[in-house]
Design a protein around this nucleic acid. Sequence first.
DNA 1: TGAACATATGAATAGATATTCATATATTCA
DNA 2: TGAATATATGAATATCTATTCATATGTTCA
Lengths: 116, 116
Amino acid sequence: MGSDICECNAVHQDVIEFARANMPEDETLYDLAELFKVFGDTTRVKILCALFESEMCVCDISLLLNMTQSSISHQLRVLKNAKLVKNRKEGKSVYYSLNDDHIKHIFEQGLDHVKE
Amino acid sequence: MGSDICECNAVHQDVIEFARANMPEDETLYDLAELFKVFGDTTRVKILCALFESEMCVCDISLLLNMTQSSISHQLRVLKNAKLVKNRKEGKSVYYSLNDDHIKHIFEQGLDHVKE
DNA sequence: TGAACATATGAATAGATATTCATATATTCA
DNA sequence: TGAATATATGAATATCTATTCATATGTTCA
């Protein structure tokens, strides 16, 4: 490992070293990928979009997206583990809402790219 | 289908309708999820990070990330299909570079969230 | 032209994941 | 307390995907 793969490597040694020096830590990049992975599912994207408007309880989201309560509940857990949503309990219902302002910005940047 | 899931639905009817009216088109949200899915892999995140610094050829990226040329090549194809990178040919080498300014912004927003 | 180099790609495999189904937990109210 | 409601969750399954391996394509240079 660490040995050259092709002749370019010698020529581009400085470029490679510079990139290596400026890359964030592996753990940071792993966390970043994990975050985007959470965004990378249609159901979760829709849930987050719904929550842009206002907090909602699980069964409301289920009706809105026309999906089973169970699948929504599973996905809300993923979103909560990623600290993208928070929840509060009121009676029998659990209301979910966005946990972070970055989310909307990330979405908007993504939409800019998609709409091109 | 379309029928209520729980009693909340009637109470929250206006909230649900408002959210439904303000959600982007299904196709847009699908494309958005597809975009984030591309970001949601450590290898691809690392490749994009490397390309923030400068264009690089395939074997340089392979050496930098200590991964096989084949796997990098496969992932570059995914990135190119998503229009996140472009490439130019020079002799035997193919140089890849970023295709879009949004990418860096999306990354930075993501990093802000991760670093909290 | 032939050999070495650089990249691309199809098939196969192992691992990850979204949904479904059944059921558990927790709350309200008669 | 018991029934109905709202949510959470474990197991199973089907689908997707990242990497590996083998090999094809394309370029340079002697």
